[in-house]
Amino acid sequence: MTIWHDMQAAGLIHCGCVLLNGEVQHSCFPAESKKQLAVAKQALMYVFRSVDKSDKDYDEAHIEIGDALFSGFKLDSDRLLIFLSEHDTNTLQIRQFIDDNKERFLQL
């Protein structure tokens, strides 16, 4: 079982990926979701670039588009976690899962 499976089994996400310096390092986005991943990646990277410029300490962003929710969580200064889930997903549970499994994500 991968960490993605664990999250999917818990009903938290459809799919996710880890970006390292803006490049996909590990992903469970299926091929048919390539476009969604591209949108999520560009949008969330833009958000966090804006956050960096503002010198504010935000490490979590959620973008609700249609019935989908793109979430981005900064793991560290180089790594960004991206998830695609239902628009009404409990983001606190995702946050909790990441906090509980941070080492596993960093090892991906």
Partner: peptide, 26 residues
């Protein structure tokens, strides 16, 4: 402005309803 750009360029996904930024101490 980002929400406008996404809605234009990724219209296949629908409109952007909201964007939320959060952090532990902000």
């Amino acid at each position: 402005r980002l929400t406008g750009a996404i809605s234009d360029k990724a219209s296949f996904m629908g409109a952007v309803n909201n964007v939320v930024l959060a952090g532990p101490d902000v």
